[in-house]
């Protein structure tokens, strides 16, 4: 047995406070204590990428973090991103392009896509594949996922530049 530890963190903008065993991973804390089951647990050893969450602005594996380590941190899960509608275009593109079948890996894919597309510029397909190297999908063969992310990247870039006047003759 171990001593319980009080943890307080902000999850999707709401402060939560619980007394938990140190062995509880952040993934299990989110899923079982907070009932935020959008974060999936696949391999539970940092390989499959289904459990990715944003911790203090950076995407990390919630299965490789104990909840006690995240005390004081700001966490955002796929529910948070979805509710804020910041990934609505990525979700739509995944839907349109059939970039999921069983959907188990999708929360992690969305996290990685969100992190990649938050950087400036349009990533190449190579960049997208590189970013996805830590996300396993056992259904799609990845091609549709890369397509969907590439489409959002191009659409966002076109949208950002649509308001800027084009150079004459460009």
């Amino acid at each position: 047995m171990s001593d319980l530890v009080n943890v307080t963190m902000t999850v999707n903008g709401t402060e939560v406070s619980h007394s938990i065993a140190p062995r509880i991973t952040l993934a299990d804390f989110l899923r079982q204590t907070l009932e935020l089951t959008g974060t999936h647990t696949g391999c539970e050893m940092g390989v499959c990428g289904a459990c990715l969450v944003i911790l203090d602005g950076r995407v990390v594996h919630s299965c490789l973090t104990f909840a006690v380590q995240a005390s004081g941190a700001a966490i955002e899960t796929v529910e948070g991103l979805s509710d804020r509608a910041v990934i609505a275009d990525i979700q739509e593109a995944f839907h349109q392009r059939n970039a999921l079948q069983c959907g188990f890996c999708t929360p992690g894919m969305l996290m990685t896509a969100h992190a990649l597309l938050s950087q400036s510029g349009v990533p190449s397909r190579e960049d997208i594949r590189d970013a996805l190297s830590g996300n396993y999908c056992r259904c799609t063969g990845y091609e549709a996922i890369v397509d969907a992310i590439e489409k959002v990247a191009r659409d966002r870039y076109a949208g950002a530049n649509a308001s800027a006047p084009e150079e004459v003759g460009a």
Partner: peptide, 9 residues
């Protein structure tokens, strides 16, 4: 795939 119980400091 869960760690054994431990204390944390």
């Amino acid at each position: 795939m869960k760690a054994r119980a431990f204390n944390y400091v």
